[in-house]
């Protein structure tokens, strides 16, 4: 119970402690689906991507302690993309040696040479991570809002104009603006919170 409600460490920091199993499980819950999605984007089949995802997580777990974050936010993602790319490369090599032993199997997977480059991968990860985190944050804060508020906000994301939103949801123009800005403010806070927790 002591100090339970007031820890100052971020999730990433706590996950470094090999004895803090719950922190690690939380960490996995945030990252696992993201890592799998990235691997799938690298043209790896669904069944293989499961193995590689686990492989990546294991590798993160082993190396997290050595990872030092500083003010440079992008650093964790660079680090992550290196791990992902290396694990995928390893996997392809394993597969190829296996393939060489069993000549008759058809080749239909990605060749090592065709694998996405490190810098491209970083870009993909950067973009998808932003989407991942903002989606997660929107999901988290949705609970605190009425369905209408979230609806308004999502419509505005799809580029619907305020006037049209108001007409469609039968709201006053001013309440569309209020609802939207409430969700926006809360979303920014929540995203900032997740960034703090997961990247620092």
């Amino acid at each position: 119970m002591k100090g339970d409600w007031q820890t100052r460490q971020t999730l990433l920091q706590r996950a470094k402690d090999p004895s803090d199993e719950s922190a690690w499980l939380d960490f996995v819950s945030y990252y696992e689906s993201f890592i799998r999605m990235i691997i799938l984007k690298m043209n790896i089949s669904a069944s293989e991507s499961d193995d590689i995802t686990q492989d990546v997580l294991l590798s993160i777990w082993k190396n997290l302690k050595g990872f030092e974050s500083d003010s440079n936010r992008a650093k964790f993602r660079t680090w992550l993309s290196t791990i992902v790319r290396n694990r995928v490369l390893n996997h392809i090599r394993d597969r190829q040696s296996h393939h060489n032993r069993m000549k008759n199997v058809k080749k239909e997977w990605v060749e090592e040479g065709k694998l996405i480059s490190q810098s491209e991968l970083e870009e993909v990860i950067e973009k998808d991570w932003k989407r991942h985190i903002t989606k997660l944050a929107l999901n988290n804060i949705s609970k605190h809002f009425s369905g209408v508020a979230v609806n308004v906000f999502e419509m505005s994301l799809r580029g619907v104009e305020n006037k049209q939103i108001a007409a469609e949801l039968n709201l006053a123009d001013s309440s569309v603006r209020t609802l939207k800005s409430r969700v926006q403010q809360s979303l920014v806070k929540e995203v900032a919170h997740l960034i703090q927790e997961l990247e620092a």
Binding site: K127, I133, S156, Q184, L187, V191
Partner: peptide, 16 residues
């Protein structure tokens, strides 16, 4: 479009 607009809030949050 939806996801792109949404992820802009990431940069927003980072600034704030």
């Amino acid at each position: 479009t939806y996801l792109d607009s949404l992820s802009e809030y990431y940069d927003f949050a980072q600034d704030s």
